[in-house]
Design a protein around this nucleic acid. Structure first.
Lengths: 209, 209
DNA sequence: GTCTATAACTAGATAGAC
DNA sequence: GTCTATCTAGTTATAGAC
């Protein structure tokens, strides 16, 4: 559609790029403008402050990434499907650095209140997506009425960010962590696939909680 | 023992304080020195660079915090004990901001390679602790030979950091997440407490993995 | 070990020409 | 909308007095 993007868009893209590649500490009006190939003063013309630019980039970035994965997520039918999809999303996001970027913003939010709000709402977009899938899947299993899907969606999303940040400093350990989660999810997936007899027995037991 | 701490120690403590309270972006030789009540030039006399000071503070901080919790962790006997202890550790760490601090360093590591190494080794201290407890507990349950305790310890540690960062921008959502995990852990704890008949049936089923 | 002073640089932000 | 120029303030780091 648009052959030449607007300066505003170029700046938003560059913000995400610099944030992912160099971290929040090295993200400034100057570095972003340089990466976008535009003049530094335009940051302030278009966004007023650097903080506002970061906030705008955060929301746009989250929206873009979720859009890219929504299709795959909506087709998830079983817990083992979910594991496969999660692994694929992880691979893509690791390459792009977009989730670690959320970590950068989460960290930056400590000193910039306006950024906290934007990051929280960016994360909320992920949470909503995860929550939809989780609710749908859990409803069909023994665990359906035992776990708190909305809360779990938040836990999973935050954990994912932590794991992607971990990947940045210790890739091997992070891989091991993802491997263990894969395996754990496979066990849980199997639990949801018990025969009717075992299911009833387990349900009786779990009712105590 | 030491009535008046050395300048070096004052700087390390101040580094952790500023990092927890203001984030990596606001942590500089000047802010740390001011918080420690010493001259700014002493940062460079004692540590050479700001980055080295951050690295030293990271390792010392991780060591201190783990020391503070080791007793409670070693007394954990069951999975539900672990849930209680984890909740208590979370409350304390949230108040002190020390885990979120690890998140700050993880984020800062993106632009400072030396910091990445220090953060990774600081996290390794937590991982080792979690791994010990997890291995001990899981050995006694159905899950013992099904899950990868070392990998899981890494996943749990990284997730914890993500959750503490989350707490900084959306405390309510983070609380919800912790609540869901509590509940989930209770379910798993119950699984480890099945009668011999159910245990055998479940084990047979899970053997397929 | 600790201080002052300062060099060299980078940051956010604005004024004003075009 | 975009540019140059500039102001102010904060940054790491060092030299040299004490």
């Amino acid at each position: 559609m648009t052959v030449s993007r607007s300066t505003r868009d170029k700046l938003l893209d560059a913000t995400l790029r610099v944030l992912a590649e160099q971290g929040i500490a090295k993200t400034s009006a100057r570095t972003v403008a340089a990466s976008a190939g535009v003049n530094q003063a335009l940051v302030f013309y278009h966004f007023g402050t650097v903080e506002e630019m970061l906030a705008a980039a955060c929301e746009q970035g989250a929206r873009q990434r979720i859009e890219a994965h929504r299709g795959a997520l909506s087709e998830v039918a079983t817990l083992s499907d979910l594991v496969d999809v999660a692994r694929r999303i992880h691979e893509e996001e690791r390459a792009a650095g977009y989730v670690a970027l959320l970590g950068q913003l989460l960290a930056g939010a400590a000193s910039h209140p306006a950024l906290a709000a934007a990051t929280a709402s960016g994360l909320r977009l992920w949470v909503a997506e995860v929550e939809t899938v989780l609710t749908r899947l859990l409803a069909a299993t023994v665990l359906g009425d035992l776990v708190d899907a909305p809360g779990l969606a938040r836990a999973v999303s935050a954990s994912f960010v932590g794991l992607e940040l971990y990947e940045g400093v210790d890739p091997e350990a992070a891989q091991q962590a993802f491997g263990a989660l894969d395996r754990l999810a496979a066990v849980v997936a199997l639990l949801s696939d018990l025969g009717p007899l075992e299911t009833r027995a387990l349900r009786r037991k779990l009712r105590q909680v």
